[in-house]
Computed example of a mutant assay.
Amino acid sequence: MNRTICGAALAAAMLVLQGCASPGAAIDKDAQARVASERPEAPRPEDFPDLGSAKWKQGAFPGTDAFARMRTGMGKDQVRELLGWPHFSEGLWGVREWNYIFHFRTGKSADYVTCQYMVRFSGDGVSTGGWWKNPDCALLAQPPAATPIPASTRLAPPQKVTLNADGLFRFDGSSLSDLLPDGQVRIERLAAELRGNFRSLHYIVVTGHTDRLGSDAYNEALSLARANTVRDLLVKQGIDGKLIRAAGMGKRQPVVSDCEGTRSSPALLRCLQPNRRVEIDVAGEQ
């Protein structure tokens, strides 16, 4: 008797799985035209689900060509072919939103940046758009096209500028209003040097770092927010924003690690100071 019940349950489960995997209906051309003419409001950061609630918490490392092929008006089967199944448990039928966790390599060892991506669908089951929780992730997903370099140009080796975060921002601050006067002057002076010393810029990577004090999530957010503020100020000073990528490494890449002392003691904070920094990597033609 028990075997019969178990067998029936297993068969029912297989039918459900087969139904989920079966192809969807043909796309309604009128539905595609409707969503193409609409301008849906972008989701707010708080509309994205918490990373901890993901069913598939590992996320994925996507190919950048997938996002180049994403278009409004695509059906769910087509989106799934490009991006895979969503990483959050959002139901099977009548779902109007898929959420993903995507990772992008920074080029520094095995480090990567984690981004959240949302695709929304109309009631007809066609996509109305795709959005990043952090808009800067779009630069990681679709890097600027490489510009051919004439053989006669003189390329400068990549240069790194390291700025002490304590000299840039007020304690625990990360916004433009938190920039110290001297810190803002240093960034403005750096922008002037970039404009004056390079005939053309190929890329700039702004990376925020923190010390080990505080949670991983807090330090990830703080380091990225500071990198974005530096990036925004460089853009205000005339540097092309399409060439600048911001990343937050949190406390994963310390410069010093053998500091001793009680938490938040002056001696410990001074010892950990080199870890609180913003690094700016620049490559271009001089």
Rank of each mutant, 00 (worst) to 15 (best):
R277E: 05
Q142V: 15
V35H: 01
C6A: 14
T64S: 14
D281V: 15
D216H: 10
L168D: 01
A25D: 10
D182T: 14
T106Q: 04
A13K: 04
G91E: 05
V126W: 07
R69M: 09
A247G: 06
E90I: 13
D136A: 12
K236T: 15
R195E: 10
D47W: 07
S264K: 13
N275W: 08
K160Y: 01
L222S: 08
D216K: 12
A227C: 04
A192Q: 13
I204R: 01
A247N: 12
W56R: 10
A36S: 04
G130L: 05
G125I: 08
L51Y: 07
A138V: 11
L140G: 00
N2V: 10
V255Y: 00
Q253E: 11
D50M: 14
L233K: 02
G107T: 00
A68Q: 13
F104M: 05
R231V: 05
S89I: 00
E220K: 00
P274F: 01
L176F: 12
G59H: 04
V255D: 09
I244C: 00
K160V: 15
V206D: 01
V235C: 01
A12C: 11
N219F: 04
F169A: 10
E285L: 09
T210R: 12
F121R: 06
Q78H: 07
M118R: 15
E188N: 11
K236F: 09
S257D: 09
A267S: 10
L179R: 08
R276T: 11
I27N: 05
P23K: 11
C271P: 04
T262W: 08
N164A: 14
R69G: 04
D240M: 09
Q142C: 02
F48A: 05
R195T: 13
T128G: 08
L140A: 09
F48H: 07
T114I: 00
L140V: 06
I187M: 02
G173M: 02
S264D: 15
N99Q: 13
A66E: 08
M14R: 03
D30N: 14
L213F: 05
K29Y: 08
T72Y: 07
D28W: 08
S122Q: 01
K133W: 06
V119W: 07
R195K: 15
A246W: 01
S53K: 13
S122G: 07
A26N: 12
G59I: 05
E188Y: 03
T229E: 03
L176D: 14
S127Y: 03
I280F: 09
D65K: 14
L15S: 07
R69I: 02
R34A: 15
R189H: 14
A246H: 02
E285A: 13
Q237E: 15
R120C: 07
F102M: 12
K133V: 02
W85M: 11
K236W: 06
A283K: 12
Q116R: 12
